[in-house]
Simulated scan of single mutants.
Amino acid sequence: MSYPEPPEKTNSPDFLGLDNLGLGILLYSYATLLGAAYVFGFWRVFGLDIFPFMSPLDYVSAPLNRMLVLIAVPLLFAVIFFGARGSLEREKSSKAALYLVGLYAAAFLSQEYQAVRRFMDFEFAFRNEISVLFITAVLFLGGIWFGYWIYKKRENVHIQIASLLLLQVALSMSAGYSDGKAIFNGAGNVMFLDNKTLCEEKGVRDWVLVGKFTDHTFFMNTIDKRLCITAEKNYKLISRMYKEGL
């Protein structure tokens, strides 16, 4: 009697001990991690611990204007999926991972240069603000180090994941800091609060929209950089470019 041969054992995506639901949870958790890195970098500029004001959904939605942040998660999990299969797929996965390392390294260096420039262009900075630039640099160097080992050990998908994860987190945090510093320094594409009395009775200074989460909206005074936190849902915004004819 002949028995069917057992299926070839492959290092499939469930090598992490996850089914489709577990992988989906991991995907959401990683998106949350990138969002938290972006939010941390962004709000460190304003000297505010923003995390108590945020809901789980806010972590994912905060960096939606950043295309590289958006595509980071599917790219990473594509490496997991294809790198977990046969030897040919693993070879292709390692080459793709190396290209992605180069892409994210170039994007980070460009973003970090912009962040450093914005840090140096404005004379005021909170005491621990520079820690963001230090953390992103350490994450970047760690990602490059793992990238070197991708070249040395091409079929090790865990090294590929580690390299891309560190570079993506570094890029997200640097992008968040750069965006926050641009608003703090007076970006031209911001939105002003039309009804100024919402933040200050008989106020004459403009208030810039800094961020909006599930239950709170944050504005910053354009003169003394004070923050206004409100739960009001009904307010009107006006573009700075429109208001000042930029």
Results as ranks from 00 to 15, higher is better:
residue 46 F to M: 03
residue 47 G to D: 01
residue 47 G to C: 07
residue 48 L to S: 12
residue 50 I to W: 06
residue 51 F to T: 00
residue 54 M to D: 00
residue 58 D to L: 02
residue 59 Y to D: 09
residue 59 Y to W: 09
residue 61 S to H: 09
residue 63 P to L: 03
residue 64 L to E: 13
residue 65 N to Y: 14
residue 66 R to F: 09
residue 66 R to E: 15
residue 67 M to P: 13
residue 67 M to F: 07
residue 67 M to L: 10
residue 68 L to A: 08
residue 68 L to M: 14
residue 71 I to A: 02
residue 72 A to L: 03
residue 72 A to K: 06
residue 75 L to V: 13
residue 76 L to T: 11
residue 77 F to V: 06
residue 78 A to H: 13
residue 81 F to M: 10
residue 81 F to L: 15
residue 83 G to D: 06
residue 86 G to F: 08
residue 87 S to Y: 06
residue 91 E to L: 11
residue 91 E to D: 07
residue 92 K to I: 10
residue 92 K to E: 05
residue 93 S to A: 07
residue 93 S to H: 01
residue 94 S to D: 03
residue 95 K to P: 04
residue 95 K to Q: 10
residue 95 K to Y: 10
residue 96 A to C: 08
residue 97 A to K: 08
residue 97 A to F: 02
residue 99 Y to K: 04
residue 101 V to S: 01
residue 102 G to Q: 02
residue 103 L to S: 02
residue 105 A to P: 08
residue 106 A to P: 00
residue 107 A to T: 10
residue 108 F to G: 05
residue 108 F to M: 12
residue 108 F to Q: 06
residue 108 F to I: 11
residue 112 E to H: 15
residue 113 Y to F: 15
residue 113 Y to A: 12
residue 113 Y to K: 08
residue 114 Q to C: 07
residue 114 Q to I: 11
residue 116 V to Y: 09
residue 118 R to Y: 05
residue 119 F to W: 00
residue 120 M to W: 12
residue 121 D to Q: 14
residue 123 E to P: 15
residue 125 A to K: 04
residue 126 F to D: 03
residue 127 R to Y: 11
residue 127 R to K: 15
residue 128 N to Q: 12
residue 128 N to D: 02
residue 129 E to I: 11
residue 129 E to G: 14
residue 130 I to S: 13
residue 130 I to Q: 15
residue 131 S to L: 14
residue 132 V to R: 02
residue 133 L to N: 01
residue 133 L to H: 00
residue 135 I to W: 14
residue 135 I to D: 15
residue 135 I to V: 12
residue 135 I to A: 03
residue 137 A to K: 14
residue 139 L to A: 05
residue 139 L to M: 01
residue 141 L to M: 02
residue 142 G to P: 08
residue 145 W to Q: 08
residue 147 G to E: 11
residue 148 Y to G: 10
residue 152 K to G: 02
residue 152 K to S: 04
residue 152 K to W: 09
residue 153 K to Q: 06
residue 153 K to Y: 04
residue 153 K to D: 11
residue 153 K to L: 04
residue 154 R to H: 04
residue 154 R to C: 03
residue 154 R to Y: 12
residue 155 E to M: 04
residue 155 E to H: 04
residue 156 N to I: 09
residue 156 N to F: 00
residue 157 V to G: 06
residue 158 H to E: 11
residue 158 H to Q: 12
residue 159 I to C: 04
residue 161 I to A: 15
residue 161 I to H: 09
residue 161 I to Q: 13
residue 161 I to K: 14
residue 163 S to F: 02
residue 164 L to W: 00
residue 167 L to N: 05
residue 168 Q to T: 15
residue 173 M to H: 05
residue 174 S to M: 04
residue 175 A to T: 03
residue 177 Y to N: 06
residue 177 Y to P: 11
residue 178 S to G: 07
residue 178 S to A: 10
residue 184 F to M: 10
